[in-house]
């Protein structure tokens, strides 16, 4: 009896999206949540005049997590996106006598307005809020071994997504840019030591930022290929981060190639789960 109920439920769940999709053609599409996790490798270039007058270059590893859904408001025209970047790079000077270790973690939250230009081509335009924390550690320096990084931003973002059918399989191409416009950025004074900052001897460490002292962007190009159980995603990300404050210049530039998977989920809220239609892990 129990197995019969389970089978019925499974069949029901299996056909539920189809049922929804069928209905959606007449009424409303089922909103799905897109999630993607990627790991990447690439090259990076680091310059921080607080640490060295030389440009360091080397390799980097990165993790990119992305989540995007349809907002429950705005007639389905708005899509919030969460993006979390983690990047670690190990770079050296040209004579290989010193190395920099750079770690950056960045979170961006963007709300996009979606333009469906046709069945295959979409454009998203969004407003973004982001925060970045990081450090550059130089293995050779004594009293100035680290340059800390931190900023909060409001910015712009855009996505162009195109679906191409190849042998009846949808292959999705996507380009995204993130461009911080204004915010606040952390910087020590030109010759200020972190020993002094630790003692509380600091007049000003945070500055209003915009293109005159902080310029950063990300270009993210992705292709997604659906497989049986998940969607394979390959992404190329070109990131640039620059601050020029107190006569101190920082530049960080990376080209990272990511590989990973993405999936679309249908989420059920707690109240819906109790209406007998779904079988969750927790009763």
């Amino acid at each position: 009896m129990l197995s019969t109920i389970n089978k019925t439920l499974c069949i029901f769940l299996l056909f539920l999206p189809v049922a929804f999709l069928a209905r959606s053609q007449e009424e409303k599409l089922v909103p799905l949540t897109y999630q993607s996790s990627l790991i990447g490798f690439g090259t990076s270039r680091v310059y921080d005049s607080y640490l060295s007058p030389l440009i360091y270059s080397g390799s980097n590893v990165g993790i990119l997590y992305e989540k995007m859904c349809m907002a429950g408001w705005g007639n389905g025209n708005f899509s919030p996106q969460h993006q979390l970047f983690f990047d670690y790079s190990c770079t050296g000077n040209k004579t290989n006598t010193a190395s920099d270790h750079t770690g950056l973690i960045e979170y961006d939250y963007t709300v996009y307005y979606r333009f469906n230009l046709n069945d295959d081509f979409q454009v998203f335009a969004g407003a973004q809020a982001g925060v970045l924390l990081g450090f550059i550690y130089n293995s050779r320096n004594g009293n100035n071994p680290v340059s800390a990084k931190g900023n909060v931003n409001l910015g712009l973002s855009g996505i162009a997504a195109y679906k191409l059918m190849i042998k009846s399989q949808p292959v999705r191409f996507r380009y995204q840019f993130n461009l911080p416009v204004a915010g606040g950025v952390y910087s020590p004074q030109f010759g200020e030591s972190y020993y002094e900052i630790g003692l509380g001897n600091s007049e000003k460490l945070f500055y209003l930022s915009s293109f005159h002292n902080h310029f950063a962007f990300k270009n993210i190009l992705s292709v997604e290929l659906p497989l049986n159980w998940l969607t394979f995603r390959a992404t190329f990300a070109n990131s640039f981060y620059q601050t020029i404050i107190n006569d101190l210049t920082t530049q960080w530039h990376s080209n990272t190639f990511y590989l990973g998977v993405s999936k679309n989920f249908y989420t059920v809220n707690g109240r819906e789960q109790h209406n007998g239609k779904y079988s969750g892990v927790f009763k």
């Binding site: 007058p53 030389l54 000077n93 040209k94 004579t95």
Partner: peptide
Amino acid sequence: LPFSSELPNGWSVRFSVC
């Protein structure tokens, strides 16, 4: 208080800053 820096040939230099 001394800081460190370097030359293009990889030599290090230390100097007073604070």
